[in-house]
Design a protein around this nucleic acid. Structure first.
Lengths: 146, 146
DNA sequence: ATTGACCTTCACACCTATGGAAGGGTTTGA
DNA sequence: TCAAACCCTTCCATAGGTGTGAAGGTCAAT
């Protein structure tokens, strides 16, 4: 398929698809006339890239990750340089932290929304059985960044 | 404490702390002499902001999130405009998606690393420190972005 | 030939983050 | 008292990242 169809099927603008290609995230065969020629795999590939970007990973990192996330089984294992493996391990740790941080903050938001809904627009009293009001950062939804 | 100490204790430069204040992420009391005056809470606060930024949230969103993540319980409930609540709900959904995406991709990386180690030159086992629930059978590291 | 999709390339916008200079006040300690 | 170290503001400039817009040309089908 050409870039327009891939764009429609992924919801990613042609402009952005070309940008991703420029960044080395996706590559396409070319038809004799110079048009980009994508096969079915690219639909998932683009979604994957989008997901990783939305996860906060940079294009530079994603470029290194992608060969490892492809799943034609263990072929690429031999491709992985020790350097790449180190990058992956570091990035996995970062993802761990990010996940922990987001989970905690999401819980906090969930709690907040629940409280708002319970109390409506009237200032809700703290009839909270948990009691503790968290004096100084006790149960703070903090997650260290880096 | 003053900005220099907060900087040392958070690892965030004074320059950046002022920037965050300018963006409305943190605010400080002022001493009579005009110096910023932070109390202990701000150490966590700064870490929290860093974590959220590292999670991919923009300063604009974080600004709206923060009042809800503070935990002096139900005081801020009356502060929340319907608009803010809508923002929160939307953002929570986004966080859900981002979390799902990251978990999946982290599993994929974990799998890959395990495979490399099994077939590579240094067979080693490692436990997953987070124990995050992984969707059983979801092998595709793809996660929709938008 | 006109239309629409595609091509490349240049330039730009926004965001986070940082640096420096100018010009001036405050604290601390020798 | 004097200097060093810290703090203040404002402004300007920069860097790298993601993402767009538009110009000017090509390809293919009606």
């Amino acid at each position: 398929m050409r870039i327009g169809e891939l764009s429609k099927r992924t919801g990613v603008s042609p402009r952005l698809l070309r940008y991703y290609e420029e960044q080395g995230l996706i590559g396409a065969k070319r038809s004799p006339n110079g048009y980009r020629d994508y096969d079915e795999r690219y639909v998932d590939r683009v979604h994957q890239v989008r997901g990783l970007l939305d996860s906060g990973l940079s294009t530079r990192i994603i470029k290194q990750l992608l060969p490892c996330l492809d799943r034609p089984d263990a072929i690429y294992v031999s491709d992985a340089t020790p350097e790449t493996i180190a990058v992956l391990e570091r990035e996995r740790e970062r993802m761990d932290e990010r996940i922990r941080c987001m989970v905690r903050n999401r819980e906090a938001i969930t709690d907040y929304l629940a409280r708002v809904r319970r109390g409506g627009d009237a200032p809700a009293e703290e009839a909270d059985p948990t009691g503790e009001a968290a004096p100084a950062g006790a149960s703070a939804p903090v997650a260290a960044g880096g």
